[in-house]
């Protein structure tokens, strides 16, 4: 009949939850016998680790099923496709240091935030993978996520198209600064938020305040070429089009037009003062 096993009785569960690499090694069967037993005892008594184990096993099962149902792709063609999607080929266009005879900037931005491609233009010519990764991050998706995390639960109204466009612009700048400074982007976002004006009633004003602060940080990190690539300009254009207040719409349009005016990076003070003017216009 059933009897308690000595190995279970003598092995106390580890007090801390399993690290990801420990659980992964457990699942791949590479832990030694003692470590595996300790992990088992912990999983048996820890609902969180048990849930993580079960869900990870389901995910791996699903991945194996998906892999079995489609032909394998070699990595380099995939990377090439990703690079193309992220606009890496347009990189040199946006970096004066690498392309002195740069072609024209993108056409006048659309009025809808949804009209922009989900993957923003890449911003560095460097082969640095961190830069490539940040370039491939989707600020619009980040902005939507930030909203659902930070605002929805506090009872704020959903963001308007204009607010969404501005938030996207802010994240563009955050990412640009992070990429230039190789900073921890989460920490960066916190610093930007801490530097922004106190939360205002209108989400757009708050995001615009963040954009001003992001601009200052971008200036400090010397990411001048970023503003020439049209991403922030597109966000500002969409925000201006959706802005009901004529004064603010005019100020936002002015900044967008200033950014589109010529191929040279605009002076930081001009961009900043335009944004601040838009912020004060309401």
């Amino acid at each position: 009949m059933l009897s308690a096993r000595p190995s279970d009785v003598t092995t106390a569960p580890p007090p801390r939850c399993l690290e990801a690499d420990e659980l992964a090694a457990f699942m791949d069967g590479t832990l030694d016998a003692a470590a595996r037993q300790r992990a088992l005892v912990h999983i048996d008594g820890c609902p969180d680790c048990h849930e993580l184990l079960a869900e990870s096993a389901r995910s791996l099962d699903a991945q194996a099923g998906a892999a079995a149902s489609k032909p394998r792709l070699r990595p380099w063609p995939v990377l090439a496709a990703l690079a193309a999607a992220a606009g890496l080929t347009a990189l040199l266009v946006h970096n004066p240091a690498h392309s002195p005879d740069r072609p024209g900037l993108p056409a006048t931005p659309g009025t809808s935030a949804e009209a922009r491609p989900s993957t923003p233009p890449a911003r560095l010519a460097s082969a640095d993978p961190a830069a490539a990764l940040l370039a491939a991050a989707d600020p619009a998706a980040l902005a939507r996520h930030a909203w659902s995390d930070d605002e929805a639960s506090r009872g704020f109204a959903p963001p308007s198209e204009r607010d969404q466009a501005l938030m996207t612009g802010v994240y563009q700048v955050d990412l640009a600064v992070g990429e230039a400074a190789h900073a921890d982007t989460a920490d960066l976002r916190e610093r930007v938020q801490a530097g922004a004006p106190a939360r205002q009633k209108h989400q757009g004003a708050f995001e615009l305040g963040r954009l001003v602060e992001s601009t200052r940080l971008a200036a400090a990190a010397r990411t001048e070429s970023f503003f020439a690539d049209g991403s922030v300009r597109a966000a500002l254009g969409a925000a201006a089009a959706a802005e009901p207040d004529p004064g603010r719409a005019r100020a936002l349009r002015g900044v967008a037009q200033a950014l589109a005016a010529d191929a040279r990076p605009r002076p930081w003070t001009a961009i900043q003062s335009g944004l601040e003017q838009a912020l004060r216009a309401r």
């Binding site: 690290e19 990801a20 690499d21 420990e22 659980l23 992964a24 090694a25 699942m27 791949d28 590479t30 832990l31 993580l52 869900e55 990870s56 995910s59 791996l60 991945q63």
Partner: peptide, 18 residues
């Protein structure tokens, strides 16, 4: 933190699942 004790796929699955 990835020490190569498991496949990278398993490790990423655990990290992203968490």
């Amino acid at each position: 933190k990835f020490e190569g004790r498991s496949s990278l796929r398993t490790y990423l699955t655990v990290v992203l699942q968490r």
